[in-house]
């Protein structure tokens, strides 16, 4: 049961993107930093990736869910708390304790991780070219829940399995919930979201070869 229509969802996304403009450029800049830190890991790379993800999760929890969607969705405050908690967890493990490592390896899991990161960067702008989810009514990279869940799941597919199990749970659950919402609102991203949740979940569930 979604308490708003597709028309209102897209309108509210448009208001959000207009309000935070030009933060979207900063988000892509941080995304580039994250990709470089994953592909060229060095001292502090894990901390960099974790910090970027934590900033995105806390921003999205407060800015998107709490400030933007709470007026039209009674569940939004709970979503805000979930996103802030995920951001704090990543910040604690990666930014404060420096316990997270991200490294691309030429394996199925590695390529899936990169594919999810690429999807988070380019899926929604591409959808906008062919559907009504055109800018500004499309989820912004890093600053909206679905692209952020894609990015985070992709990043943790490039991390040790234990970290992926701990930090990938919320993104997978969110992708599943977002797919259901997308289907109910007849939005065009239902199948990509389901595919991402299934692939990401399977990759995390299957133990890595030693």
């Amino acid at each position: 049961m979604i308490p708003f229509s597709r028309e209102v969802f897209l309108s509210t996304l448009g208001q959000y993107n207009s309000f935070i403009w030009p933060a979207q450029f900063a988000a892509y800049g941080l995304g580039l930093l994250l990709v470089i830190a994953i592909l060229r890991p060095g001292p502090g790379a894990g901390r960099t990736v974790a910090t970027v993800l934590a900033v995105f999760w806390i921003w999205t929890g407060l800015g998107f869910h709490w400030l933007l969607y709470a007026p039209i969705n009674f569940a939004a405050p709970a979503f805000a708390a979930l996103f802030v908690a995920e951001g704090c967890l990543i910040a604690f493990s990666g930014a404060l304790r420096n316990q997270l490592e991200f490294c691309f390896q030429r394996s199925l899991r590695g390529w899936c991780g990169l594919a999810l990161i690429a999807a988070s960067l380019f899926l929604y702008p591409a959808l906008g070219l062919f559907t009504h989810m055109a800018w500004p009514s499309s989820p912004a990279f890093g600053l909206s829940p679905a692209p952020l869940a894609l990015l985070t799941l992709g990043a943790f597919l490039l991390a040790p399995r234990r970290a992926a199990l701990l930090h990938g749970f919320v993104p997978i659950m969110w992708l599943g919930a977002a797919a259901v919402a997308s289907w109910l609102l007849t939005l065009p991203d239902t199948l990509p979201l389901i595919a991402a949740a299934v692939i990401g979940g399977a990759m995390i569930a299957v133990p890595q070869k030693p």
């Binding site: 308490p3 708003f4 209102v8 309108s11 509210t12």
Partner: peptide
Amino acid sequence: SFVTFNVGADKAL
């Protein structure tokens, strides 16, 4: 008014 009047801040809506 469930869903139908939940249009947020959009003045046109």
